[in-house]
Structures are given as C-alpha cells and as structure tokens.
C-alpha cells in the first residue's frame, strides 16, 4: 500500500504525535489541529487524485477531518493513524462520487475506455502525475487510484460497485494511458 510514514509533528507544536492523538481522543481540539496539519497533505493528495479537481478535493478534506474527529474514539491504535485516515478518506471520496453524476461514469467502463483512447491521441506533451490523473475519465481514475492506494481488484469492485473484470480492464487502460502521457 502506498502510504506515507506516520506523520511527524509539525513545527506548530513540538509534542509527540501519539500524545496528540491521545489528547484529541479526549476531546482536545487543539491537539486534533496538530494531527490535521500533519496529515492533511496526504489526505488531500488522495482526494485530489481521485476527483481530479482541487476545489472539490479541499471540500472533501474538510469532510474527512470532521468525520475523523467524530470517529477518533474508534481508533484503537492497531494500525497507524495514517492508515486509518487513509481508509476514511477513500470511503468519503467514494461516497461523494456515488452521490454525484460521476456514479454513472464509475460503472460505465466502455465509455471510459473510449475517452481514454481519444485523449491520449491529443496529448503531445509530458504531464505531471496529478495532471495526468485529472485527465482520466472519472471511472478509470477512481479504479487506478484505488489500485495505487493498495486496494485489491476485489475490493475495488466492491467499493465502486462494478464487476471485478470491468475494474481490471479499466485499470489496465488507465495505466497504459498514464504511461504514454508521463513518459514520452
């Protein structure tokens, strides 16, 4: 799974991160702010890569951390907080996508495949990764990002509501398109 290491304390507060988690679980919002500043970049990266839109990603970042605050009491420390936040983030983004028009794009693999083919012919310059991801159709982007985030084909199928075979096909096409765009 592609995850950053346990976030380190920010310059904002020198206290150990584990202590911040413990105090936040006891209701200390200032301690939770420490967690926010340390974890927000990784959360934002997932949101941005899955949605392809900076503004939407920022809104989802807020949703994720509000939800994280509400559910912090359920974090028992068996995994790293980053792992726990990661799962929370993915779930939140997928919820958002299901409730928007992108839900149709998620399940319509053929449309995604055609869109990838069209775009790849029009691009003649190297893109950075996020820009390339943003150019993918929503369905293909979601599948690819989930895969790169470490979810299995079966998990991706369950999360997106599409068949495993369709998810695999979308993944391959998206990866192929990105390879063409990123490497001349």
């Amino acid at each position: 799974m592609t995850l950053s290491a346990e976030p380190t304390a920010t310059p904002h507060d020198a206290e150990p991160f584990a202590d911040a988690v413990r105090r936040a679980q006891q209701g200390d919002v200032d301690a939770f702010e420490t967690i926010y500043h340390a974890s927000a970049p990784a959360v934002f990266a997932i949101c941005r890569r899955m949605t392809g839109d900076d503004r939407e990603a920022r809104e989802l970042v807020q949703d994720v951390f509000v939800r994280a605050w509400e559910r912090l009491g359920t974090f028992r420390g068996e995994s790293a907080l980053a792992t726990w936040l990661h799962r929370l983030t993915v779930n939140r983004v997928l919820e958002s996508m299901r409730s928007s028009r992108r839900h149709a794009a998620l399940i319509d693999g053929d449309e995604s495949a055609d869109a990838i083919g069209l775009e790849s012919d029009q691009l003649d310059m190297r893109l950075d990764l996020d820009a390339a991801l943003a150019r993918l159709p929503a369905g293909a982007r979601t599948v690819l990002v989930l895969h790169l985030e470490g979810f299995s084909h079966g998990e991706i199928a369950r999360l997106t509501g599409i068949a495993a075979g369709t998810a695999r096909a979308q993944l391959w096409r998206a990866r192929r398109a990105l390879a063409r765009w990123l490497i001349p």
Partner: peptide
C-alpha cells in the same frame, strides 16, 4: 514504464498552500 506509475504515485505530492487555511472551517 507501467511499474513507474506506482513509483511516481508514491512520491510526496506537492503541498497545497491552501490546506492550512482550511483548519478554521473544520
């Protein structure tokens, strides 16, 4: 080339300067 995508994905993403400003609303 296909493996490179995963490697590029694992690189740290550039920090969004707006993120710090989201905290008050959160």
């Amino acid at each position: 080339r296909l493996r490179m995508i995963a490697r590029r994905y694992g690189e740290p993403a550039p920090r969004d300067p707006v993120l710090a400003g989201l905290w008050p609303e959160i």
